[in-house]
Every structure is written in C-alpha cells, then in structure tokens.
Design a protein around this nucleic acid. Structure first.
Lengths: 234, 234
DNA sequence: CGCCGGATTGATCAGTTTCAAGGCATGTGG
DNA sequence: CCACATGCCTTGAAACTGATCAATCCGGCG
C-alpha cells in the first residue's frame, strides 16, 4: 500500500487558531491546530483512483486530511453489499479512530492527495497537551454527529428525500462558482444513501425534469432552486 | 423537567480502574473513572416511563449513566417519522455531546433511574486532567462505532437480518439467566431498525415458528439457537 | 371480570429493486 | 481524425420486499 510518491514532508504551520466555533466547523483548522500542538511532522501522500488507503481491521497508523481529491469510507457485508459511511472532501480529516484498529475501509474516489500524521504522535501529544486531546474529541464528535444525521436518513427517509439531502450536503461542501462537481459515481451515491444506483439516477432525472437542477455532464450539477430541494428534504 | 425525586447525592467512588481494554468495554467503569478523576458530585435522578430526559436542541447540562431501566435517544422528521439511534441500558453513558447542545431527544422507555454529573464539571476536569479527556473521547468514539455499525444495518440489511442483529445485540447486552427481557415495545424496535412494528412482529413470529427463539410474553425472549440467528444476520 | 394498549396476523398496496436494453460520453488506437 | 471500445448513466418493465390498512388477539391491570 505504501508505494506512492512521497512529496517533501513539511512541518505543520505553527499558527494556533483562535478558538473557532465548534459547530460543524471546517475541520481544516482543527487539523492544523493538532499538528501544530503536537509538533508533529505532516507528510503528503498520493493515491490513485480506487486505491485503498487503509482497510477495515488494520491497525490505525495514521490520521489523514484530504488535500485534493475525495475519499469514501465504507463497511461491507459478507456478500458484498456496501454502506458508505462518509465522503471526505478537501479539508476533511479521516482515519481517526479511538481504538487500535480501523473499523471501515478508506478508498480514494479520484486521484487524491492527503496529508498525514502518525497516530501515535497525536496520541502522545494528547497525553500531555489537553488542547490536542480536546481537538481529537471534537473531531470524533463531528463524525458522530454526521452519523446520527445519516442514520435518520437511512432509516426513515424516502428515496427522493435521501437524494435531496445528499444534494444539499454536497452543495454546502463542494459547490464552487455555482457548480457542483461530484467526484463519485452513481453507485457510490447509492451506497451512501442506501439505494441502488438506478434509483439515484431516477431521482436526479426527476429533479432535472422539474427544473430544480441542471446538468453539464452527469457529475456536474447546478442547483437551480435550493428552496424546492429543501422542501423535498423531509 | 427537573421535577423528579432527588435521592441523596453521592460522591463518586474514588477508585481508579486499572486500564481496561477500550474495545467496546462496558462503559460503567469508564464513567466511574471520570467521576473519580473529576472529583465531581454524581447525583441520582428518576424518570417515569416515556418521560423526556432532554430534548433535541437543548443545552447539554448533564451527562447521564443508566442505573436502572432503559433510555431511547432519537431524532424526528417534521412529520413525526422517528429514528432511534440507540438504546441505553444499565451501565451505559448517554447525553455526552461535544457540542453545546443535544442533537437527539432522550426518553425513559420504562421507569428509569440515572446517575448524572454536570457536563461543565467534566469539561473543567478534562481541561486539566488528560485522563478524563481521554475517557470522554473514548466514550464518544464508542458511540461513533455503534453508529457506523448501525448505518450498515439501516442502509443495507434486510428486515430479517435487521431483527437478527437486534436480537443478538440485546442478547449480548441484557440477557440474564438465559432470558432476554426487552424493555421496549415493537414500535421502538421498528424505529431503531428502520422498519414498521408489523414487520418486526412478523420477523419475530417467523423466528418463533422456526424454533430459533421462544416467548414467555411478547417481551420475554429466550434464544434457542444463536448459531442459526447468527446465520440470518448478514 | 372486563378493559385497554400492545402484539399478531391477514390482505392489499406502493416504493424500490432487479433485470434488461440502450445511450452518451471519454479516451485510445488505427 | 475518426472508429470503436469501454465504462457510466439513463430509462423501461417486471418482480419483490416491506408498508399500509384492517381486524382480531392477548395479557396485564384496574
């Protein structure tokens, strides 16, 4: 697995962010703070499309932050059914498990570059620096919050509501210049929402027909009416 | 809400547990450690069946541990559809959110007694005591692990697989003397598994017919063949 | 003993999946 | 530069799982 180009390891910037809001705040700053507090070396690393970053059950060696690209983390059932727990986009931290081993598999969705720090370094820093410990907790709590919202979606929302929620989430997280460039395929979206790829496609087509969104290629979406989309979201 | 009988506040026992395994370990010990480290006053408090303990959006004033009874934590959609995120049984800690406000509602399933400590006291303790901070993180991480498993269940398992998983989880957590005494009704189970109460009932009836479980009253279940149940779980 | 909420069971319905075919981009090699 | 191969996406039709609607049934409790 560790066969990628290692770009020049860089020392994390020394700035300390002045206590930001912890409400679903961008994790970028938190990660920087952690790296700074820990005085830890952060390296960069690249993965090709569909390459595994770590596997379910493997020991937690590193904590990662997406620099460029996108990552999916998922669980599998014996027969191959897959549930994607989260998509990680530039700025997001992933791979931070409190236990000794990962409980999901992480794969690059597209060619992806990550920053990474040794988990043991963070642990050590957290053991002596309360601020670092608090950041680790906050990051994990952010993941829990997302999971709680997603359980509601998976257990109780209809297909159209799921897709509407997904679009609003992606709109919030990666719309640049009015255009949402989805890095993932329809199957990934389906496995994130607990749907088949066909159902996702049908819902998107319906939203297109209704003028709520526009396409420029299957993965380039423009939201034309966020209000109506929000109404479709339960 | 704070109108219950307050039984004699007790100072938490001063023993420090000798580092146990952190792998899904019973949270009982962790909570004791926190209370001890924090030097915090732990009070007891009781709630009647179906009484709200805290509501979605309320500030996080306390952290709770179930002493007796059972608690459900859930989210609602506008139209009343409900997703129960977790059942909290004796020993379990709940209500620990990293943010300032709760993101789920907690209700007593049956008459329930909890131990509680002020969240601010824990925060303060965590700010000066790394061990406490680590325990808070571990507790939150345990909740995240459960949520990740549950997302897989909600998104990708069939009705029968969901019910089998549920039974095995409850068997692990509350079977005493070979008998599983479920505190919750069929609707609660359905709202936990993303099913209707009828579907839950049908699955249980089918397992009964197949001799995999026995009833003594709708909520007293004996598992007669855990292996076959495990096979039904994906 | 009878009431009442919860549980079971049955019949039908609807939403989503499955199976299948075809279209549309992208990129590669002739 | 075009033809074709490939992967991804869309669309259609049929099948199926679980939901909904509707009676009972049962058991605990007043």
């Amino acid at each position: 697995m560790l066969t990628q180009t290692i770009t020049a390891p860089t020392v994390a910037p020394a700035r300390i962010s002045t206590a930001k809001t912890f409400q679903a705040a961008p994790t970028v700053d938190q990660f920087s703070v952690i790296a700074a507090c820990a005085g830890v070396i952060a390296s960069e690393f690249s993965y090709r499309k569909d390459e595994e970053i770590y596997g379910d059950g493997e020991p937690c060696e590193y904590v990662y932050q997406v620099i460029r690209g996108a990552v999916r983390t998922y669980k599998l059932l014996n027969d191959g059914r897959r549930q994607i727990g989260a998509f990680h986009l530039p700025g997001d931290v992933f791979g931070l498990d409190a236990g000794a081993t990962h409980r999901l598999t992480a794969e690059a969705i597209t060619d992806t570059t990550v920053r990474l720090v040794k988990r043991r370094s963070l642990e050590a820093a957290a053991g002596s620096n309360v601020k670092v410990a608090h950041h680790l907790w906050t990051l994990t709590a952010g993941g829990l919050r997302h999971a709680e919202d997603h359980m509601l979606l998976l257990g109780r929302k209809t297909a159209m509501e799921k897709v509407a929620t997904f679009l609003l989430e992606m709109d919030r997280r990666l719309t640049k210049a009015g255009l949402m460039a989805l890095p993932m395929c329809r199957r990934d979206i389906g496995d994130y929402l607990g749907l088949t790829l066909e159902t996702v496609s049908r819902a998107l087509s319906q939203l297109h027909t209704q003028g709520i969104l526009g396409f420029s290629g299957a993965r380039q979406i423009v939201l034309r009416n966020r209000q109506r989309l929000h109404n479709l979201d339960a």
